[in-house]
């Protein structure tokens, strides 16, 4: 029963995406019958294949709407600023060639897949850091740091406030 509900929810999501993508094929807001049938069949197949990926290990929590609002706030605020800073940092290092690279380890204390993915992607796009490996069992992050200031850093030294954001938004 639970599985049927999960497949149905995945089907609804996939169908919604299909409808949004095909709006401009006709007059605004009108879909032809062929389009609807094709979309329904394709969405059903997609739901059968991928519902496990969506709901396994607490992934369904990502559908709560307040997380989306927080995510938008995060994207437009701290994340965007960090990305701009990261690009200027790369420009500085390309011109001066001043690098002190190394691979450091730290543990931000995240438990879910979604939270870890969120933090790993944020780290890769923000100044001077690149996620190499995440230990699935212990939650250790191995990060290539282009300018090592401390061989055994705390999470805050490497990526500032991002672990807290990851906890709030995705966990």
């Amino acid at each position: 029963m639970r599985r049927v509900a999960q497949i149905a929810a995945t089907f609804a999501l996939a169908f919604l995406v299909y409808l949004v993508l095909t709006i401009p094929s006709g007059p605004l807001g009108l879909w032809s019958l062929d389009e609807l049938l094709a979309g329904a069949v394709i969405s059903f197949l997609v739901a059968l294949v991928s519902y496990r990926l969506l709901w396994e290990r607490g992934g369904g929590r990502l559908l709560q709407p307040w997380r989306w609002v927080l995510f938008l706030v995060y994207l437009l605020g701290p994340f965007f600023l960090a990305m701009a800073k990261a690009n200027l940092d790369v420009a500085y290092r390309v011109i001066t060639g001043r690098i002190r690279p190394g691979i450091v380890r730290f543990n931000p204390g995240l438990r879910t897949d979604a939270g870890r993915t969120f933090l790993a992607n944020s780290i890769t796009l923000t100044p001077g850091t690149l996620t190499l490996e995440v230990d699935e069992a212990t939650g250790d992050f191995y990060v290539h740091w282009i300018n090592v200031r401390n061989v055994d850093p705390t999470p805050e030294e490497v990526c500032g406030p991002f672990p807290k954001w990851a906890k709030v938004v995705a966990e």
């Binding site: 691979i103 490996e133 290539h144």
Partner: peptide
């Protein structure tokens, strides 16, 4: 970022050492 993370991890597993690394945990 996901793709570049996969490439970096693959490079490390293929045995490429980071250039002038001060530490490699």
């Amino acid at each position: 970022p996901t793709g570049s993370h996969a490439l970096a991890r693959a490079a490390h597993r293929a045995g490429i050492k980071p250039f002038q690394a001060v530490v490699d945990r």
